[in-house]
Every structure is written in structure tokens, then in C-alpha cells.
Amino acid sequence: MTLPGLFPYWVVIVLMMIGFYMVIAHGNLVLKIIGLNIFQTSVFLLYISMGKVRGGTAPIIASGFSTYSNPLPHVLILTAIVVGIATTALAAALIIRIHGAYGTIEEDEIHRQDNSL
């Protein structure tokens, strides 16, 4: 069974757009961050899927294997995952501060309080 050659990329784009929709359509700040994480993980998937070689194995050199997938996207995404968790932590801290200042984490409520000042 063979899939059309671009199929994994299209699935990844659909996932990416679900995350993007969450970021712009949800008013709840925590749900926005979850959407951002979904978007981010989908970008990781896009990079990793480009590094895959048909019939290849994980890029750990061992006897008995000759075809390996490309290690370069793996390295880039390892860095990106760690940077991603750093931004998530910072966003979570900001949400806690926003809740402390406004008493809510709903975007519309925050705007309403800002405008009534």
C-alpha cells in the first residue's frame, strides 16, 4: 500500500491549521497556548517528515545497516523543542500574572476591563 507522496505533509498542514485556529479564535489564554503548542508540534512533524528516507533507519551508525534517515532535521527540532518549552513556561507565567491583575484569563473580559478604565 502506497500513499500519495505528499500525503504526510498535507496531514501536518491540517494539524497546523487546527492549532492556528485555536490561537486566533479562542478567547481563553490557556487554550490559546495549547493551540500554539499544537501548531509548534505540527511544524516539528513537517521538518522530521522531510528527513525521512524510504527504507532508512534511525541515524545511529551500526553494522548491518546502510540506509539512514537524515540526522540534520532531528538536531534542529531537538533544539526547537527545548526552546518551545521555554516559551510555554514564560507564557504560563504571564497568564498567572494577567489573572492576578484582571481576575480572569478570558480575552474579552480583559479588553472590557481595559476599556472601562
Binding site: V30, I33, I34, N37, T41, F44, L45, I48, S49, G51, K52, V53, G56, T57, A58, P59, I60, Y68, S69, P73, H74, I77, L78, I81, V82, G84, I85, T88, A89, A92, I95, I96
Partner: peptide
């Protein structure tokens, strides 16, 4: 990631993405 041969990335994603990120957001 494992299916796409990126075992190191899979390991990190399972630990950081599924673990730490979930804990952080639950704490928030």
C-alpha cells in the same frame, strides 16, 4: 517521530512536550 526514524526527537518530545508542558499548563 519514531515511525519517521527520529528516535532522539521522540524521546525529547515525550519527556518535554507530554510531560513538562502538561504539568506547567495544569499548574497555570
Amino acid at each position: 517521530f519514531v515511525l519517521m526514524d527520529a528516535v532522539d526527537v521522540a524521546f525529547t518530545e515525550a519527556a518535554v512536550g507530554a510531560g513538562i508542558s502538561t504539568v506547567l499548563l495544569l499548574a497555570t
